[in-house]
Design a protein around this nucleic acid. Structure first.
Lengths: 231, 231
DNA sequence: GGACTTCTTTGCGCTATCGCAAAGAAGCAG
DNA sequence: CTGCTTCTTTGCGATAGCGCAAAGAAGTCC
C-alpha cells in the first residue's frame, strides 16, 4: 500500500510541485503507521522528519513539567506537520504529535526538504503559508485564552472543529467526535467545566451531548455565544 | 538620515543577503517615524508593507471586540515585523503594531519582498526561521497561559524580557522599563495582579519595583518561581 | 512650587472556575 | 448476561484572580 506521488498534490504545500518533485519526495520518504494513542514524535526529539498525514487524525500537544496537556492543533489527512526541521539546523520538535485514531503517515527526511527548498520557491512559499496560517490561529487563540471566558472559548473550539472536520448530519446539524477531556485541552480548561457547559447547552437545546460525541443542533446560537459583545 | 544598506545585515533575515539585494531593499523602501503611542498599522489593514525597526521599541498586540488588549510580541531594533504580507496574497495584518517609544522604521513593500523571495532561498529561509521562532514562542506562551498560575507567568515574562532587552546594572541586577499595565498584557492578567505580585516579591527582596520600572535583584529566585515543580 | 496627569498600591467583595469525590452511562470482552 | 473499563455528570467546597474605588507616589508642565 504505497502512496501514489500524485496524491501528494492534495497536500497544500505541494500543490504546485512538479511531477518530478513529487517523485523525489515520495521516494525519499518512509511510510509509518501509528496506532491510536501512540506518538509520532515527542517534544524535544530531533526533528529529523516532517510528516504528511495520509489517513487518520492526530494532534499536536505540549505537556508542562507537571504533566498537564495543552492541545495546539488537530491534524487531518493530507496536512503536513513537524515541518520546522526542514528549516532550522539541528532543530528539535517543539511539541509532541499523538495519533487520535490509527494513522498512516509519510515521513519525509528533513534533509530532503532542506535540499528541495533551496531552489523551489513554490515550496518555501507553501511552507510559509502553512506557518503564517498557524501563527494567525495561535495568536487568535492566545488572545482568546487571555481575554475570553471559558464558555466562549468552548463555543469557539466547537466552531473551529466544525469548520475543520465536522460531519454534516440532517437539518444542518454537525457531529463531532471528541471526549470532554480533548475538548477541555483545546479550550484550555478542565473536563469538568466542559461537561457542565455542554449540559447547560443541552438544556437549552443548542447541542446534543453524548459519549465522545457532540452534535451541534443550532450552530448559529453557538456563534452568538462566541461573538456576542455583552453577555 | 537615510539608512545605510549595509546596516540591513543586522536584520537576521538579511544576514546572508548580497550587497546587491540590500540595495534593492533599501531603495524600494520608505522611512517612517512613528511617535510613541502611535501605530504602524492596525489589525485588519492590508499588509502592504513589512517593517524593519531601526530605532525605538514597539509591540504587536491584538484587541478583542470589547477593547481588551493582549501583547503578542515586543519588537526591538533591527527586528522585522509585519512580514506576512510578503507571503500571502491580499493579506491583512493579523495584529496591530504600536510604538512603545518614538520609533524609526523602514517600510519595505510587500510586493518587493514577494519578488525577491522567488529566487533568493536565503530570504525564504530567513523568513521561515523568523516564523518558526515565533511559532515556538507562541506555543510556549499559549501553554503557559493555559496551565500555569499567574505568579509563574509574570516571572516568565520578566525573564523573557531580561533575555531580550534587560539593561544590566551592578551586581547582576537587571532593570526593565515597563508599566504594570504593559506587564499585565504580556502575562495575560490585570495590572492589579501584577502590582500585588511585584509588591510581594519586593517584600521578599527579589525585585525592586518603581514607577515604570522593575529591577530584578535576584534573577535566580525568579527562575525558581518560573520553573519549580510544586509550589 | 503648585496643579495635573499618569502610574501604582491596597483593601474589599465577588464570582468564575477549579478540583475532588462519588455515582451514573455507555461501550466492550468473554 | 455480567463484569470491567472508560467516559461523563453533578454536588460541594475552595480559591485564585478579577475589578472597583480610593488614596498614594512620581513625573511633567508652566
Amino acid at each position: 500500500m504505497s502512496i501514489n506521488p500524485a496524491d501528494l498534490r492534495r497536500v497544500n504545500v505541494f500543490e504546485k510541485a512538479s511531477d518530478e518533485d513529487l517523485k523525489i519526495i515520495a521516494q525519499g520518504s518512509i511510510e509509518r503507521s501509528i496506532e491510536e494513542g501512540n506518538f509520532f514524535f515527542f517534544q524535544g526529539d530531533p526533528a529529523d522528519y516532517a510528516y504528511i498525514l495520509v489517513a487518520g487524525r492526530a494532534k499536536l500537544l505540549q505537556t508542562n513539567p507537571s504533566g498537564q496537556q495543552v492541545n495546539l492543533r488537530t491534524i487531518n489527512a493530507w496536512q503536513m506537520f513537524g515541518a520546522l526541521g526542514a528549516v532550522r539546523e539541528a532543530a528539535t520538535y517543539p511539541a509532541s504529535a499523538q495519533a487520535l485514531e490509527d494513522c498512516n503517515a509519510l515521513a519525509v527526511k528533513s534533509t530532503t526538504l532542506k535540499e528541495l527548498i533551496k531552489d523551489r520557491p513554490y515550496l518555501s512559499i507553501g511552507l510559509m503559508n502553512l506557518m503564517t496560517d498557524y501563527i494567525q490561529e495561535m495568536q487568535e487563540r492566545y488572545r482568546e485564552l487571555a481575554t475570553e471566558k471559558v464558555e466562549r472559548r468552548i463555543a469557539r473550539v466547537l466552531l473551529r472543529l466544525t469548520a475543520q472536520m465536522g460531519i454534516k448530519g440532517e437539518h444542518n446539524t454537525i457531529e463531532l467526535g471528541f471526549t470532554r477531556k480533548e475538548l477541555s485541552e483545546m479550550a484550555g480548561t478542565t473536563l469538568f467545566t466542559v461537561s457542565r457547559i455542554l449540559s447547560e447547552w443541552e438544556r437549552l437545546g443548542l447541542v446534543e451531548a453524548g459519549r465522545e460525541r457532540v452534535v451541534i443542533l443550532q450552530p448559529h446560537e453557538l456563534v452568538v455565544i462566541a461573538e456576542e459583545l455583552e453577555k
